[in-house]
Amino acid sequence: MSEITYLKPKNAKFFRNNNGFLGLKFNDVEYSRVNLIKAFPFSYENKFISVRDKEQNEIGIIEDISLFPEEVQKLFTEEIERRYYLPKITKIYSIKDEFGYSNWEVETNYGRRKFTIRRDPNNFVNIKANMILIIDVDGNRYEIPDYTKLDKKSFKKIELLL
């Protein structure tokens, strides 16, 4: 497919700017800040990542981040983590239902959180196999990467929602 410009370790040099953003030098053009956007956020997490400049014009696509050297991969993961900020729920302390909403208190890999979700199938989505995406009333997103791996008590609390 000639329509797609692929960024390869050979022609694309990524680096971290002193202001914390990801920069890129590609075909002799230097971009002080580029954004990484996943084409398939759920089905191919580390593949087909669109690299865009400040004005959101596509510079090219990274076919697979594992093609890049390890330290660059680390830059990618950091950048992606920031854009697709998605705390992983590791433990559920409580779920309280109230008037069509439920109040959750959970432990995540980013610390303890409290949030409210509207009781609606669209806010509690089984994205794939055992993974669940939760969207709260403010539009914040949380993930249960694998509900079968939750501890028993936590699992019991969401069992009826599945």
Partner: peptide, 14 residues
């Protein structure tokens, strides 16, 4: 001309 991140927040504070 250079962007700096001052802070980060969830949608609740947007």
């Amino acid at each position: 001309g250079v962007d700096y991140i001052l802070c980060q927040f969830t949608n609740s504070c947007l």
